[in-house]
Design a protein around this nucleic acid. Sequence first.
DNA 1: CGCAAGATTGATTTTGATCAACGGCAGTGG
DNA 2: CCACTGCCGTTGATCAAAATCAATCTTGCG
Lengths: 221, 221
Amino acid sequence: MTQVTNLQDYANLHPATRPHAVRKPVYKSFKPDTEFEIDDFLKSQVFVVSAGAIGRRHMLGDGRETISSVYFENEVLDFRIMDTATGTLVCLLPVTVRVYDGDEFDRLKIEKPELGARQLANMINQHRYAARHCVDLARKSAVEKLASFIFECRSRLPAGRDGAICLTLKRSDIADYMGLRIETLSRAFSKLKRERLIDYSEVDEVAILNEPALRQIANGR
Amino acid sequence: MTQVTNLQDYANLHPATRPHAVRKPVYKSFKPDTEFEIDDFLKSQVFVVSAGAIGRRHMLGDGRETISSVYFENEVLDFRIMDTATGTLVCLLPVTVRVYDGDEFDRLKIEKPELGARQLANMINQHRYAARHCVDLARKSAVEKLASFIFECRSRLPAGRDGAICLTLKRSDIADYMGLRIETLSRAFSKLKRERLIDYSEVDEVAILNEPALRQIANGR
DNA sequence: CGCAAGATTGATTTTGATCAACGGCAGTGG
DNA sequence: CCACTGCCGTTGATCAAAATCAATCTTGCG
């Protein structure tokens, strides 16, 4: 399933048919750990993640951290309709985004209504991810959580070489996202590898060796 | 468990009260545990919860249940833009909803712009609740989860007598929502009561005795 | 009353967090 | 070039929290 809203492709599609030239999106890059300050200007913008990953990070009183949601490649952050009160948006990796002015983004949508539909689809997907994520967090064991996360990565991220699944995030961010400590997560990786359900040599490139079994685990037996 | 197969049946109940266009919403009541079957007809409808609570229930392979989100009084379920693929919508209590035809709902929004504003606000709130809920589930202890839940109920539900907080849901649903077993949840209630942070005589009506302390716990120390 | 469903409490087991040590690797600087 | 350092990931030992198993209590209801 593709939930890509490739605005760049679209923007380049029919330049001649547009009376008022649509400005090209501005690409911006950020270092890991960059936090986005939510000011009035940002609140009129739309980001489309072009590379890397942006997370919504929450801090508990004693320093425990959790990441409630992640925006991967091609996912849309529309700050005009986004909850900017809960958590902090932070770059989990080196990030590149396409930045659109909100009005400009809307003009693009008017020219091509299907673009709006795609943005809506992306929003609904975000909802779906959140619901599934709650299920993962609420009742699943560490190994089940990891299995779920691997499938989530496969469906949300482009594959690596030989169809390997790119986990993209580093261990500490996966742990914060899945509600585990790093050590527990590491043991879950080791367990799945030892039992020949997955394999990896690079920490962030995983191959599924036994998909039915892994799926069973992700779904809770 | 009752399955609603055709909402048209009751939509036809009061034809006399509807001239050309439906002006009055149709009220419909459901017994606890009623599951909504997501068919094409329902997908054109909008519900506004009038009483009770509707939950999105998910089943793991071995029977573990979790409720990923809850719709309380006055909250809007717009099936036209709702993810209907994940989980099952189920009545957690005796439920009454106002049922609107989607188009009619949109026409009403033009007449009463505040309705549209409320729907948008409710959607953003649903997002926010989901993000907070992930934080609650990911890292918090049982007592912290319960403290969070009590505050969530206070902000989402009308107060009871003497300003008491209505928990509305029964223990097993609270447990499924907060990712705890019933017994663990019960112990958390007992602990908060024993330590004089909350008080209750009815299981579903809680008073906060020491709000700052309870807030601290909800936020993780 | 007798029964069923919901809620609580107690005893034990399991799971994941915590504490601690270690290995690999990239960047830095003599 | 190699030692040093910091970051990241892994593994082991112990501890604490929640799940599980089991029994009991409460309440509403035919």
